[in-house]
Nucleic acid binder design. Sequence first.
DNA 1: TTATGTTTTCCTGTTT
DNA 2: AAAACAGGAAAACATA
Length: 274
Amino acid sequence: MSTTPTAALDSQLIATWGLPNTYPDVPTVMSGYTGRLWPHDSQPQFWSKFQVWEWLQQVMDMHQIDASSIPFQNFDMDGHQLCSLSYQDFIRAAGSVGPILFHSITELKWSGQEIGQLEIKPDLDFSCPFPDVSYPGGNLEIYNPAIYPLAPVASPTPSSPDIKRTYSRPHQVKKHNPRGTHLWEFIRDILLNPERNPGLIKWEDRTEGVFRFLKSEAVAQLWGKKKNNTSMTYEKLSRAMRYYYKREILERVDGRRLVYKFGRNARGWRESET
DNA sequence: TTATGTTTTCCTGTTT
DNA sequence: AAAACAGGAAAACATA
């Protein structure tokens, strides 16, 4: 009412996420990860096809799953395409191994983005800590191995492609995904990463998919940041949310302000997806 | 270039 | 009274 909304949000978010100059040394961050690491090697979206396949091989090894149990041809794509696959796409492409791969790539997108941005340009501005580097702007979030070590399940980083197979046909796994995430996926990803969600949105009923906005305007600002739109507001964000009712991506929860519920067409939010 | 899908913007009215 | 909720309309944008 009295203070500038944006200024208030800025300080609030910066306060919650920590200041950029508090992050640990990059070498510390990368130690135990892999030896020399070029920014692009740590960012899956820049992987070549060979690197994608090497990543696949390593994840399979790591989980002691026979690599022949998944059709590598389904991953005949570069890192950029890989990163745009949805949870369902992974299921379609790799069946029961899909969730493992999805988890792995999600982790890598996170850490890769952070490492990459720390090296390239430490931005003082707050930004969206989610796996999408398709927007300009930095990220002050710090990867702190002490708090959430790189998942046991993930983080092989291809360095020397040695997998050679003849891939015949491209077999596209996905249909559309307008570069990056949709609003509902953005919301979902905040919920799914509680360590990096400083009280923005909270699960109300985890198994039912009910959640509530705690800081509606802050979420709107973040969304705007991601879309490179400074004038995003909760008012406008919520209009987009309401369109999801018809598509059954969200279900109506009436009587409760700022409360929404994932619908049958929302994927990837459950603890265990079929 | 057109067609489509997904917001974004704006607005009027209602509800909490 | 302020903040949310509801949707209609139409513009804006990105991708297929």
